[in-house]
Write a protein that binds this DNA or RNA. Sequence first.
DNA 1: CCGTATCCTAATCGATACTG
DNA 2: CAGTATCGATTAGGATACGG
Lengths: 128, 128
Amino acid sequence: MVTKQLKGSAKDEADVTRADSLAREIFSDIANKWALLIIEAVGDSTLRFTELRNEIEGISHKMLTQNLRLLERNGLVERTVHPTVPPRVEYALTEPGRALRATVGGMCDWTHRYLGAIETARERFDSA
Amino acid sequence: MVTKQLKGSAKDEADVTRADSLAREIFSDIANKWALLIIEAVGDSTLRFTELRNEIEGISHKMLTQNLRLLERNGLVERTVHPTVPPRVEYALTEPGRALRATVGGMCDWTHRYLGAIETARERFDSA
DNA sequence: CCGTATCCTAATCGATACTG
DNA sequence: CAGTATCGATTAGGATACGG
């Protein structure tokens, strides 16, 4: 259960408690706008920093590096530096990254599928 | 493409541009830790405010109401007020909400599935 | 080209108190 | 019980500048 974590620490449950806490931590790392958009943007490609920046509308230099580091740390993204000058740095999804990408793709599909329904819901809500 | 939005407004592309911008807006609403955890927590149940609060470890009163409003506004969650005293307010997923829940469930499964791999990746990363 | 660091503003969040 | 409002404190995030 990702919705639960850190609970009391009866010695027998110490491990599952730790796992829950870790699960939540990972979930919190991943479940944010920029991280998910990056995963979606990389997809099956191998992209350079600047290419990613152009691919993801509105992301700042800082947010991109920050989230790429985060994804790299959690092993979702692999970073390859080509020691040329000027440097060439490429990003690609790892196996875990591609696995997550499947569900992120689902979220994107969902967004488009329900776009109209959501717009209507918003209008109803806002006029109340 | 959820990764793109607001682009230039050549009159022919005005509609798709608007749709992209809306898609991104919705995606940003939804792709946050608390919103996703709430969706996961509600699931197929009908839960009261306090039940939800207990279900989601670490969420504050404020974050819960705030995100419930957000989900309600976007038509993912249905709010039912029973005019008793004390009041009884129940939350359940709508059809769009349940559809999204499927993919959120996928994210949670993913988290548990790759827990070990991620922990290892982190250790490697942190010792560098 | 890519990354880090700094500064500064805006947004987030928790705690608390108050209403129906 | 559920919701709103307010207030500090923390953090996120953009802009900029500089180094490899």
